[in-house]
């Protein structure tokens, strides 16, 4: 065992990369849940995004086009969920699960010819001057574009929810859809837009896994990332910056256990690999109980079916 081989600067830098897919998926799901819809299909949308992005990036040779395609793929899949839950008034939990099962099957179907191929590299933005600062440079200013896009999304989501009229309407629809309907807001339309946004974000997160983090396509490669994103929304008590914190915590645990594996710690690999899942559960337990009760900050109409009867 050689713990000195772990470089703390590289550790933190790779933490930011490991957290990015979770941030993207979680911030999308946060918007969806703020509108009062519980979409459990994040895992399915992520993996479809992962293969869409991967396939298109390989075909066109441009990772950027790949990311756009991934967002589109995720959004299309989420619309399926949107139509079922908003127009056909199906149970959101069941439909979300169906979305995940369908997405997993669909993605491995689409990925038939792409196993073992390397995608085109996503370039790093070495921000001049800033990336030369010792310690902070490699940690903060030497990543690919998507890391900053994810951070930008968090800030934008926070600002939109807090300061804009659109954010207010979104929250109103999520807290009390009958009242919002009575005020003349189009509940179904708002929710469909939120669902589509969530799908696009989840697609981006998936593509980040297959194009940057791994980078390769394997079946079932998201390995629960979508579910962890869902857990992190609860952990973050539906607040953007707390979600960011949760994603970094998860990214930190993931990177640390990978480093410990590489350093040859005496703990078996399997037990190190399950640690991110166990810690996510532990964090969920802490957040849901006692004073911090996450349930209190959940949108009041989360998961309820809206049917305008008159």
């Amino acid at each position: 065992m050689d713990l000195s081989s772990i470089n703390p600067i590289l550790l933190v830098a790779s933490l930011m990369v490991a957290a990015t897919p979770i941030i993207l998926a979680a911030i999308g799901e946060l918007i969806v849940e703020k509108s009062g819809v519980l979409n459990l299909g994040v895992e399915g949308m992520m993996i479809v995004g992962a293969i869409c992005g991967f396939a298109i990036a390989v075909q066109t040779g441009s990772p950027f086009v790949g990311f756009v395609a991934a967002a589109f793929g995720g959004a299309v899949l989420s619309l399926l969920f949107g139509i079922l839950t908003q127009y056909f008034l199906s149970n959101q939990v069941a439909t979300g699960l169906g979305l995940t099962l369908f997405g997993l099957g669909l993605s491995s179907l689409m990925g038939q010819g792409y196993i073992g191929i390397r995608p085109p590299a996503t370039p790093r933005l070495e921000i001049p001057v800033l990336s030369d600062i010792p310690v902070l440079g490699p940690v903060l200013f030497n990543h690919d574009l998507m890391v900053y896009v994810a951070l930008g999304l968090v800030v934008a989501t926070w600002a939109v929810l807090k300061f804009t009229r659109a954010g207010l309407i979104l929250r109103a629809v999520g807290e009390n859809h009958d009242a919002a309907h009575a005020l003349g807001y189009k509940v179904v339309r708002v929710r469909l837009m939120a669902i589509t946004f969530g799908g696009a974000c989840a697609g981006l997160g998936g593509a980040y896994l297959s194009l940057v983090r791994v980078p390769q396509w394997t079946e079932g490669m998201t390995a629960g990332a979508g579910w962890i994103a869902l857990a992190i929304v609860v952990f973050g008590a539906w607040r953007p910056f707390r979600v960011l914190l949760g994603a970094y915590l998860f990214g930190g645990v993931t990177v640390l256990q990978l480093n410990l594996q590489a350093a040859g710690v005496a703990i078996p690999v399997e037990y190190l690999s399950m640690s991110p899942y166990l810690i996510t559960i532990a964090v969920l337990v802490i957040m849901s109980s006692g004073k911090a009760k996450a349930a209190l900050s959940a949108p009041a109409c989360l998961g309820k079916i809206f049917h305008a009867s008159s």
């Binding site: 079922l84 169906g98 099962l101 369908f102 099957g105 993605s107 179907l109 038939q112």
Partner: peptide, 13 residues
Amino acid sequence: AAAIQAFQGMLLF
């Protein structure tokens, strides 16, 4: 093989 998985998912939808 994945086609059947997608097929089963479709059924639920």
